[in-house]
């Protein structure tokens, strides 16, 4: 009946007294190995059916892969996910930058995506910067020093105030980067 009979080598030492105690426990367990009543499984299932339905979160496929890993492999996987999130965020920022530049070139109205100033307190005046270098610095310090960028061309000055209404709507991608890091860290 016992799936795993006690073996003398389990304790890595010879101790007849402890072996006897283990034997007594095993005997006790064998004497109490009755089968459950027939309806128990159905009763349990009914209780489960009364439970609200579980739904996995959108992050489940990502964390499920990490759960099977242990130790260093898990750490490496978590780090890889973190790097992927950062690289993805940078790539998104780069794409946004390019799109902004294209938009600036085509029509002088700046795209709302361009404005990385997430905080509504930042003055939006110089945010339309058609900076010559396409560095992804837009994500680095979006709100602290907007005056660092070179002054825009005269034609852009007129558009300075137009992006203001849409800023809050499109701060999503920046915030999305933060959201992505959450489950990664949790996993």
């Amino acid at each position: 009946m016992t799936r795993h009979p006690y073996g003398h080598d389990e304790l890595d030492r010879v101790d007849p007294e402890l072996d006897r105690v283990a034997g007594e426990l095993e005997r006790y367990a064998a004497a109490r190995s009755g089968e459950p009543p027939l309806g128990l499984a159905a009763r349990i299932q009914a209780a489960i059916d009364d439970e609200p339905e579980r739904r996995a979160g959108w992050w489940a496929p990502f964390t499920a892969g990490l759960r099977g890993l242990r130790g260093p492999a898990r750490a490496v996987a978590v780090a890889a996910v973190g790097v992927a999130v950062v690289v993805g965020a940078l790539a998104l920022g780069d794409l946004a930058e390019r799109a902004r530049q294209n938009n600036v070139g085509a029509s002088s109205t700046p795209s709302p995506l361009v404005t990385p100033t997430a905080s509504p307190t930042a003055s939006p005046t110089p945010s339309v910067t058609p900076s010559p270098s396409p560095s992804p610095s837009a994500t680095a310090s979006p709100s602290d020093e907007p005056s660092v960028s070179p002054s825009p061309s005269a034609s852009d000055d007129d558009d300075v105030e137009t992006p203001e209404p849409s800023e809050s709507d499109h701060s999503g991608p920046g915030g999305g980067g933060d959201d992505n890091s959450g489950p990664g860290g949790g996993g």
Partner: peptide, 21 residues
């Protein structure tokens, strides 16, 4: 993990005896 109740029903069926004991 995906909330499949059928899968859990099989777990109940298979493990009730060992848990009960």
């Amino acid at each position: 993990r995906a909330g499949d109740r059928d899968a859990f029903a099989l777990v109940v069926e298979r493990e009730t005896s060992s848990v009960y004991r």
